[in-house]
Design a protein around this nucleic acid. Structure first.
Lengths: 301, 301
DNA sequence: CCGTTCCATACGCCCAGAGATATCAGATGA
DNA sequence: TCATCTGATATCTCTGGGCGTATGGAACGG
């Protein structure tokens, strides 16, 4: 790619003159006097090295060389204008692409409303959303594989910003046939001797430790009979009688025959869902999405 | 199409920097010092309105806006370079398109050699050749439907230039079985009582009048039994015995069983084939073709 | 803690190019 | 023949932008 040789204003003048085929009219359309236009065209022809127009009485005609240059000149101008417009749209945050990771349980609570609101405000933004558990989201943020994470119980990180978007209590997940399911609420201590179905600690250490902490507070260490990587699966396993579980309340949205969700006593423990982003991310869409969350919060999606 | 806003040198700097992702290296590739490059990029970012690069320790990274602008900038530069090259190729006469009309009889003499030589010298020129009789060629030149004509016996025209490329005598066209065909040469006067097969006067008035003149000089007016618009057809009609004809000597190239061509006495009359062009045609290919003809003439194609 | 790397800023120079006004010159047509 | 329309030329002004050198400031690595 060598040095560009033709100034754009001259190309613009050339295209307009090629359309008008009349120096006076073309100059008027360009908003300049006629002599400067003659000069522009002359300079352009000098640089090309050949005449682009035949001056004939009553107007001008494109030469073969001019005829060849015209489509290229048009492309150059329109490509530039559209490229500039697109870059500005992206720079301003009106358009672009945002990659969002989310914990599965979030899909039941904040995510749908957030996506709906954001898409309304930024219809030209393409959203790539993918389900990921908390730990992989943190890694993906560092990798720049995603731009926004919706994580559960994050622990602070130097490079990342977090903001809580939801706090919710825990519920006990029980087979519907289990005696404990007959009560409106259960004490954590009552789960002490039952086998547990939990997510592996690796996919969300903070949440895991919090659940373990609930049990510890009730005086026992949970015996994990089975791991599952999605809450959906946890419910299914509970249904089959493999065990019970403790989970964030939003899991109630999973309607599954044969599984009961019960408030726990004491009900003070809360789990947080937070939005996470790279602090040094300059993508304006990240700020836009954070702003959308801030505004959306009061309305409670 | 509005005013272009981004100077090309800045776009060029942008593309190079986007490839190098390093101000120092990019400046070196551009052959300038580093501070001017910083300025170029800064000015460009000011005009776009948004940052195109993220300056980070150890180098720079494209922002989303910069990433969007990059392909457009590349297209602009390459389109411009290629368009300019194409326009110059055409302006210089190395490439382009030339529309050539030719009289049918010319296809037997000058045309093949001319085309071959011209194509050798200008392989990138597209030649549109079409057979036309003389009068339509003149009209087509005025219409700018063809650029070059190869005509027989033209009459001078103000707007057109002519140059003779071939002079040839007339021959008598006879059925092989005819008694006159037994002689090596025939006198025009001997054709006086025979029916004639000729091209209509309208397709080539000058040639027609010249043939009629030959007859008048021999003391008779030809009785036209049949018209035909191609020499090929004339020969065929002569073969069937419908009449005889007088034709340019190049018609001998038509090898047709049962038709004889005989030199005529007196053999002084000559018919001319000329190349014709618009005097005010600025297409360099026209000049190139005329030059090719001038050089080719001595070798006698 | 210091040197290196990398980019930005400051300042000055210079010129290509874009604009204007005034005028000229060729072709056309009543 | 003359008025008119075409575009070209001459001349001047002004400024944006491209380039240089010198210097500043932040981040990183040993």
């Amino acid at each position: 790619m060598e040095r560009p040789e033709l100034p754009l204003p001259q190309l613009h003048a050339f295209v307009v003159l090629a359309e008008e085929l009349h120096f006076g009219h073309a100059a008027a359309r360009l908003g300049i006097a006629q002599p400067p236009l003659s000069q522009q065209i002359r300079r352009l022809e000098d640089k090309v090295g050949y005449a682009l127009f035949s001056r004939r009485p009553g107007g001008v005609v494109l030469t073969p060389a001019g005829h060849e240059l015209l489509p290229a000149a048009r492309r150059v101008l329109t490509d530039l204008a559209s490229g500039l417009a697109a870059a500005r749209a992206i720079g301003s945050g009106r358009a672009g692409r945002l990659r969002i990771g989310f914990a599965a349980s979030v899909a039941l609570t904040v995510l749908p409303g957030l996506l709906r609101t954001f898409r309304q405000r930024f219809p030209d933004v393409h959203l790539d959303i993918q389900e990921m558990t908390t730990a992989p989201q943190i890694a993906a943020l560092h990798d720049r594989t995603i731009d926004i994470g919706l994580v559960r119980e994050p622990y602070p990180e130097a490079e990342l910003g977090f903001r809580t978007v939801l706090r919710e209590p825990f519920v006990a997940v029980l087979p519907a046939a289990h005696p404990l399911a007959a009560q409106p609420a259960v004490e954590v201590a009552h789960l002490a001797d039952l086998p547990f179905v939990l997510l592996p600690r690796a996919v969300g250490p903070q949440l895991y430790d919090q659940i373990a902490g609930l049990c510890a507070d009730a005086g026992f260490t949970p015996r994990v009979a089975q791991h599952a990587v999605e809450w959906q699966t946890v419910c299914a396993l509970v249904k089959t009688g493999l065990g019970v579980s403790l989970a964030p309340a939003s899991i109630r949205r999973i309607r599954l025959e044969g599984v009961a969700f019960r408030t726990i006593e004491p009900g003070t423990a809360r789990t947080r869902v937070a939005v996470a982003w790279r602090k040094n991310d300059e993508n304006p869409l990240v700020a836009q999405l954070l702003a959308t969350i801030s505004q959306g919060q009061p309305d409670g999606f």
